[in-house]
Design a protein around this nucleic acid. Structure first.
Lengths: 213, 213, 213, 213
DNA sequence: GATGAATGAGGCTTCATTCAT
DNA sequence: AATGAATGAAGCCTCATTCAT
């Protein structure tokens, strides 16, 4: 290894690391601004200011406003999916009631810790913002990810004969509705109790509603 | 009452009636445009065009864009509230299960017939569009009206010992969640079945989840 | 004719006339600004200022900057084409040398009276500004119009046996080159003599160069 | 001269040579990008990319965008001037018709081999890009160089009594116009024949147009 | 000297609102 | 009261230039 290559092996990663830092800072700023000002109200200038960079820098990292929002959601969606998958794996051998409660608790906790993201998701579900040619990731694709995992969970419940097998489709809609409803209330009329404590009640309610007998 | 006043009582109402007509036409146009373009995407010019009037006319009837949206929601909210109240009255003497199902069916039917309004409501629930000092009617106040009636209904259920009295608060959140979730699915991924047919399933699910024993 | 229709027949044309006025004012302002600042350097704000309107007004009349430039050129091109056609018609029965000189003189005079337009034309001939999907009128389409008439004229010359019939294509290129060159010099290094006085010299030069014998 | 200085005379030139290499690479890249994207559309980043260097490097070699363009034109202008001067020298003793044809052919060949430069020249003739205080070399100064040699050539023609002596000024304008027109056509509507083959036609046309008798 | 990320002035465009007719 | 053209504040985005490494 000559000095040239050793310089490169240090210098390039440095630049790359700094670039990553900025990227993260921008995403974080965007999360907060989109979360508080809304999908339509967030201004690029505000995001830049909060990230501590110039507007132009935003465009060095993201193609345009839409791309920034998309990539923000994609990135946060990954974290969420990872957490839910982990929870699903962890519960694999437990009885269904426990799995359900664990899943619900994980979901609630995650959003409790990521309120701005929750806010963005809830708004993006209905916004007609995204242009037609949105590349790949429609903003609310994140909810689809949750949906998939809810379905996966409920299939386990059916297999374990803990849930009725008819109305299976509707039941995932129901569970999503319960979760969403509780989360939305938390967002707009925060209670003092940690939201994850609602998990047993939600799980129990759902279970009684959907159970086999 | 002299003849003069009797003339007035005929002539003025004519103007008033014409004004009312325009008002209605604008509200209807606004409903469709806000519904299809979204709360942020609806343009005053589009609304005017669809109503068949000039932009200026919108401002002769409504103070500004926000007022138009507010009054639109207020007006549609009244219809909805009336319908739900009627349903509540009609069911007064029936057993709770029947009342619940009737209420759910009424709600679903109403929105099935007023999809643009549904769309507006779902979006307005999370939009940060409205300025801080919105006079009186925050856009999503309409959901509050539904909420009140749901609570009223559930109180009857508790009184009739058909529902547990603990978790009463949470249960209205739950029922709202179920309804919202089913309606949202209908809006974004319409099924072929009339949505009101879901009422029995929703009611039954809720009842099992919340029933006393 | 009732009062309503008579009002309309006066009021509508009024608005229309006013609109036309503004349109013309904008086109004139655009001609001067594009002419003096160049195709790339002309700013919408400057055009608005010179037209005595707000920026927004530009967009009430033209879709965007490109459309404004296009329509400006189209409009000026019509005037030019009209003038040349008239000259061609007028000369129909004259001998070719006279026709040629008349045509050249008309062209030079026209541009002498419309220097900003000349400037725009000369620049637009080489600018790579126009986006791919330019609707119909590429900026330099105006030169094509001149070209067509030059060809028409030269065909007459050939028919009248005043010009050689070989090299006909090249000869229109040559005549355009002579004209363009003289006009460009006039634009960038104005002489004191009225430019149309050059017509005899140009026509004679061309005639000797292209004549049959 | 001691050994030290002899080392310097070898080592320094190395650095100088490397610097020269980069300089050339940048100019070549600039030529292609300015040529294809236009004077206004060429982006520093594109030039850097094509040259295989970083943007910053452009600024290590040229003061700013204008300077880069200027120096590009200056450098290409030298090549052109050299070629024309050589041609003028070579023809010195030939009869004027031959000199004229040789000159025209040389000019056409040169531009046939340097189309991007031709494109830049044609555009720069009319662009109002250059700031007022451009240091020394206005972009289109290159055409002035051609102009001077054309005048020189025509003076020989007059001296040799091959050209009329009146209208001498106008004749150089004419010859430039013919050349420019043919070159522009070649650029925007390329024919299949080598452009230099047009030389006899152009020369003959001009000669008939401008000859003494 | 090379690098390339950061900068921010500056241009284009949109659209809610106003106002003269 | 209706009309619709005019207004201009505000937002997005580009790109020449700078500068720390």
């Amino acid at each position: 290894m000559n000095s040239n290559s050793s310089i490169r092996s240090k210098i390039l990663p440095l630049r790359v690391r700094l670039r990553e830092e900025t990227n993260k800072a921008i995403l974080q700023a965007a999360e907060q601004v989109f979360g508080s000002q809304g999908l339509g109200g967030a201004r690029m200038e505000d995001i830049a200011a909060r990230a501590g960079v110039a507007v132009g820098t935003l465009y060095n990292h993201f193609h345009d406003r839409d791309a920034l929002l998309s990539e923000l959601i994609v990135s946060r969606r990954h974290e969420l999916a990872r957490r839910l998958d982990e929870e699903l794996r962890r519960g694999e051998s437990a009885d269904f009631a426990r799995q359900l409660e664990g899943f619900v608790a994980a979901l609630l906790s995650h959003f409790e810790e990521h309120r701005p993201f929750l806010s963005i998701l809830l708004e993006s579900e209905h916004s007609r913002t995204a242009p037609v040619g949105a590349r790949g990731a429609r903003p609310n694709a994140a909810l689809v990810e949750v949906y998939k995992r809810v379905q996966q969970l409920l299939e386990r419940g059916i297999a374990a004969r803990a849930l009725r097998h008819d109305d299976a489709d509707l039941h995932s809609v129901f569970l999503m509705g319960l979760l969403r409803s509780v989360l939305a209330r938390e967002l707009y009329a925060p209670t003092q109790v940690p939201i994850a404590e609602r998990a047993p009640q939600i799980a129990a309610f759902f279970l009684r509603g959907a159970e086999r007998r």
